[in-house]
């Protein structure tokens, strides 16, 4: 499996290198892979790339974590008190419809050019993709499981945390995975619009000073962030929702 993946990537890079070397595309926009790697290596050595990478990753992580907490708390409250969920659902719908970048100008005024700005934009963009699936899963628990908990003497609050929440983890983690992606987009976009550092800023800065190889290197780094965050979610998911995968595998085997 791994071998096949490596082969396809290697073939793609080789094709790129060939096309760029033969100048089938304008060289100033599509430098050969080797040149990009060289530029990336230089940026790594100077520390420029790693610093930007760390800044963006931290912003996405902090904002993503806050999104998860906010989304989950809202979903738990909404599941326990239906009135609350109905009250704020129009607001959530509006927030969900605003593109993350559109909130940046307001955030600059409201939060200032501080780290809070980036984290604020990430949370704004990211909490709905946790909240909505979480609420949906929490209110759609298997009725029989609720009956069982009630007849055994569990209170509504205990049922929420001991039955409905564990049953909802698989769906919640699907939402968290989406939020991880959104968090990276929002972090990079807000750095482009309002940053003086981070990968988003580096991408703009290198592109507009026509350091195209360096821009590609920053892009690769951004891709690495996506992979890292995704792996983190997969790793966190296992203790909460791993049972669902093992159950599904068994179903496939039968």
């Amino acid at each position: 499996m791994w071998f096949k993946k490596c082969v396809s990537i290697a073939l793609f890079l080789l094709l790129w290198e060939g096309i760029a070397r033969l100048e089938l595309v304008p060289n100033e926009y599509f430098p050969p892979v080797t040149q990009i790697l060289l530029a990336g290596w230089e940026m790594l050595r100077s520390g420029e790339l790693l610093l930007a990478e760390a800044q963006t990753l931290l912003r996405a992580l902090a904002g993503g974590a806050l999104s998860v907490v906010l989304g989950l708390v809202m979903a738990l409250l909404g599941a326990r008190y239906e009135l609350l969920a109905r009250m704020w659902s129009p607001l959530v719908e509006i927030v969900r419809s605003i593109p993350p970048a559109a909130i940046v100008p307001l955030a600059i005024f409201a939060l200032g050019l501080t780290p809070t700005l980036f984290i604020g934009v990430v949370v704004f963009a990211g909490f709905t993709t946790v909240y909505l699936p979480a609420l949906n899963a929490l209110v759609n628990t298997e009725p029989v499981q609720i009956y069982v908990a009630r007849t055994l003497g569990y209170s509504r609050l205990e049922t929420l945390f001991l039955v409905r929440l564990p049953a909802a983890w698989p769906e919640i983690f699907t939402g968290i995975r989406v939020t991880a992606g959104v968090a990276l987009i929002a972090a990079v976009a807000s750095e482009m619009l309002a940053g003086k550092d981070g990968l988003g800023f580096l991408l703009f800065d290198t592109a507009f000073s026509l350091r195209i190889s360096e821009m590609f290197a920053a892009m690769l780094m951004a891709a690495l962030n996506g992979i890292l965050l995704n792996q983190l979610v997969v790793w966190l998911r296992n203790p909460f929702a791993g049972w669902q995968d093992r159950l599904a595998q068994l179903g496939d085997a039968r």
Binding site: V144, V148, V163, A167, W243, Q244
Partner: peptide
């Protein structure tokens, strides 16, 4: 009027009534 202590129910749909986690 609420499920009383000392009374247990065994439901038909065992695959749903047990907690899979």
């Amino acid at each position: 009027d609420e499920p009383p202590e000392g009374l247990s129910v065994v439901f038909q749909d065992y695959s749903r009534s047990l907690l899979p986690w």
